[in-house]
């Protein structure tokens, strides 16, 4: 049976946990808070540690909980990420490109453009311009690659809701890129 050794936690795990968090919340100060919070919660529930998993695995599982809690908190603060469904099957006339902006031609949509630093900055500022709920869901799914099911459970939305949000986020990003990059 393994035993916990909290006095060595910082030396052994703090860097790993910190990077893990930063990659997911992309905010330096916030990551520090979450890591600290994780250690304190771990201390509190140290009695429940059964030694089935390694110390690190155990800490990471607590950390994951904390990160999800963080997302949940923003979600409830901003009102639930719920949107009205109007995607599929709304009648016979529905379903062409008339009411949505038709994709314009993007010049220069070459692979090497992907490495372009200015374009990277542009996409960053476009993501920042999204409404907060959309940005949150879009980032969780696309950048952090969290599974659809997990996001739906944690934010208490349905999967069709999630896809509508993703589609709207993508539509706005496309528009933003078209206005600021491709058709400049």
């Amino acid at each position: 049976m393994q035993k916990l050794d909290p006095n060595k936690w910082i030396d052994k795990y703090s860097d790993y946990l910190f990077k893990y968090t930063l990659a997911r919340v992309s905010n330096y100060e916030l990551s520090k808070d979450i890591v600290q919070d994780t250690f304190f919660s771990a201390l509190k529930s140290a009695k429940n540690f059964e030694g089935k998993a390694s110390e690190r695995t155990w800490l990471v599982s607590i950390l994951k909980r904390k990160i999800i809690d963080h997302y949940r908190k923003i979600n409830s603060k901003k009102g639930k990420a719920e949107v009205r469904m109007n995607f599929y099957n709304e009648g016979d006339n529905d379903g062409d490109w008339l009411e949505e902006r038709v994709p314009q031609t993007w010049d220069n949509m070459a692979e090497k453009q992907l490495e372009n630093k200015e374009l990277q900055n542009q996409i960053n500022s476009c993501i920042d311009k999204l409404p907060e709920k959309y940005a949150m869901v879009f980032k969780m799914r696309t950048i952090q690659e969290i599974d659809t099911e997990v996001i739906c459970n944690e934010l208490e939305i349905t999967s069709s809701n999630l896809w509508v949000i993703i589609h709207r986020a993508r539509t706005q990003l496309r528009r933003c890129l078209e206005d600021n990059w491709f058709n400049k």
Partner: peptide, 29 residues
Amino acid sequence: KYSKQNVFLTKLCRNKSNDDKKKQISLCM
């Protein structure tokens, strides 16, 4: 056309996240 652009958009976002991760390796407490 939409589909091609969508793929491009996804790659762009993934690239960005890889880039972020690289930058963050040097960051610690």
